[in-house]
Design a protein around this nucleic acid. Structure first.
Lengths: 193, 193
DNA sequence: GTCTATATCAAGATAGAC
DNA sequence: GTCTATCTTGATATAGAC
């Protein structure tokens, strides 16, 4: 069913990945996916029950890819707060929105099969930030009164909210400013940074 | 054309306001708006050229209403950082998403007539936060090295990102945690708070 | 200003040949 | 496994009566 040998299946999922990022779930039709992939109607409905399952497969792949990127960013070595800053200031295409969380406000997010990969991605980032912040706190590099979990949640929120600001103002700088603010707040909350 | 006397026009805009918040722009059809408003096809296309203009009118009203709420929240009186905290910790229906910025990732945001009210709302909040943070800084209540504009952008991003986290995890607590983190960071960055 | 009836096209999926 | 042809429904808008 999900055997890797079938060429059209892979083409369909690849097309879905591109279109989900570009247009979201509701605005992506099976026809669009078929046109971009070069497959016919039959291929899609042979490999998948319908649109939702195509999107689920695409989102699962996207989440796995992005989680691998996150793991590389947070790889041990640099001081913990440097890793946090590296995540925050990473280059992004702000106007395109977050590859996964751009779907947050679609009705489709009420379906676990679609929501789960997105939640896993966001949750993985939160956990990575959390680990760094605990490490910084244990080394005395974080002001008392700061809960690593809550701060981690605030930082991922700044990034996801930054995408929203950029889209709404139609200006990448809106996201950069929010990230700057987060970096400044983090520095002000770091006694020995 | 936009005279306040026409009853069906108002009913149509009121229905559009409700549906835009609940479902977004693309997922709201003229039929839905007509069904909820009790008007017929003709009324909508008599008062508006089409769906986009109905949404523009609805968004303009929503932005005006929400900006009035923001102005009440930031009314002079309390210390500036108390007003910032009051905005951050305000009660919200996290799973419904931001009434205006929930549209951020829709293709419709590329149209200025729809984007502008949303941008005005978000920009107004940023300006209100900015004013409070400048006031706090001038009173010595903000750590040096913190740019009020950037911190204001980060805080509105935490709120908008908090909505995203709540939707993605399908849990209001995800937003509350992010807000908590922002409040803690702000406190850690406030020398005399 | 408001209504109903109609037109057009795309979304999403099925049928069945190859 | 893959294809083309077809089906059904809803989105969006127009026509024209009242």
């Amino acid at each position: 069913m999900a055997r890797p040998g079938s060429s059209k299946r892979e083409a369909i999922v690849a097309a879905a990945k591109a279109l989900l990022w570009e247009r979201g779930y509701e605005a992506t039709s099976p026809r669009d996916v078929l046109a971009l992939s070069g497959a016919g109607q039959g291929s899609l409905y042979h490999h998948f029950p319908g649109k939702r399952e195509v999107a689920a497969a695409a989102l699962a792949e996207m989440a796995a890819e992005e989680i691998a990127v996150i793991d590389a960013l947070f790889a041990p070595g640099p001081p913990p707060l440097d890793r946090v800053r590296a995540y925050l200031t990473r280059e992004r295409q702000a106007l395109r929105g977050c590859r996964l969380a751009r779907l947050a406000n679609e009705a489709a997010m009420e379906e676990p099969v679609l929501r789960d990969p997105v939640a896993a991605y966001v949750g993985h980032i939160r956990a990575s930030l959390h680990g760094c912040l605990e490490e910084a706190r244990d080394a005395g590099g974080l002001a008392p009164g700061l809960a690593p979990g809550a701060v981690a949640a605030a930082l991922i929120a700044v990034v996801e909210g930054g995408y929203v600001l950029a889209r709404v103002h139609w200006d990448e700088a809106a996201m950069r400013e929010a990230i700057d603010g987060a970096v400044q707040l983090l520095a002000a909350a770091s006694p020995q940074a």
